[in-house]
């Protein structure tokens, strides 16, 4: 097997395991109930992209008017990352180079560097743990942005750890204690 195919195979395994990981992912008991309540109200956020363009509009699912009853704060996340992921982030044991590769997907919308007025937070200012919490909140539909929900749903815990390791390696000017300000 070529290195590339091998990597691909690993990724497929990782992708299938993330769904199982989601079921058991940590977080306060209240958060889980909250997430279920949101799911009941909002329904599925994502759909086949081909169907989207075929239907466009009322039939297509989305997150219109999602009530942010418990607006996710920027200082105290509603949801903590799973314990193993927290440990990996704290230890900085994620695969930084893999994280750099994965970050390519982020960089299409998030600049690396700060722009004061930007409504999408720049990556160099992300605190790794706060970043992982935010992703978990997107994955549980506690934050409304559908694009981030989709991306978060595609990231396995080891991929989040890899991204965190990459972000931690960035020479961000005031990066150390910043958290994602954007709660969309």
């Amino acid at each position: 097997m070529s290195p590339r195919l091998h990597a691909f195979a690993i990724a497929r395994v990782a992708a299938s395991s993330v769904r199982a990981a989601l079921v058991i992912a940590g977080g306060g008991p209240g958060a889980g109930v909250l997430a279920l309540a949101f799911m009941a109200v909002v329904g599925p956020t994502v759909a086949s992209a081909q169907n989207l363009e075929a239907t466009t509009g009322a039939e297509a699912p989305g997150c219109a008017g999602v009530p942010l009853a418990a607006s996710p704060g920027t200082e105290s996340p509603l949801v903590d990352p799973a314990k193993d992921l927290r440990a990996a982030i704290a230890a900085g044991s994620g695969d930084r180079d893999w994280g750099e590769w994965l970050a390519g997907e982020c960089l299409a919308c998030h600049g690396l560097h700060a722009k004061a007025e930007a409504s999408i937070p720049p990556l160099a200012t992300l605190d790794p743990m706060a970043f992982a919490s935010a992703l978990e909140e997107y994955r549980r539909h506690l934050r409304p942005d559908p694009g981030m929900r989709l991306l978060a749903s595609r990231l396995a815990p080891d991929e989040v750890a890899a991204l965190a390791a990459y972000f931690a390696s960035l020479p961000g000017e005031d990066a150390a204690d910043a958290v994602p300000a954007d709660n969309r």
Binding site: T45, V46, A47, S48, A49, Q50, L52, T56, G57, A58, A60, P61, G62, C63, A64, G65, P146, G147, R149, L150, S153
Partner: peptide
């Protein structure tokens, strides 16, 4: 194409 999203009519 995998999963996707789209803005909705009637959004605020």
């Amino acid at each position: 194409a995998g999963e996707g999203f789209i803005s909705q009519v009637g959004e605020t």
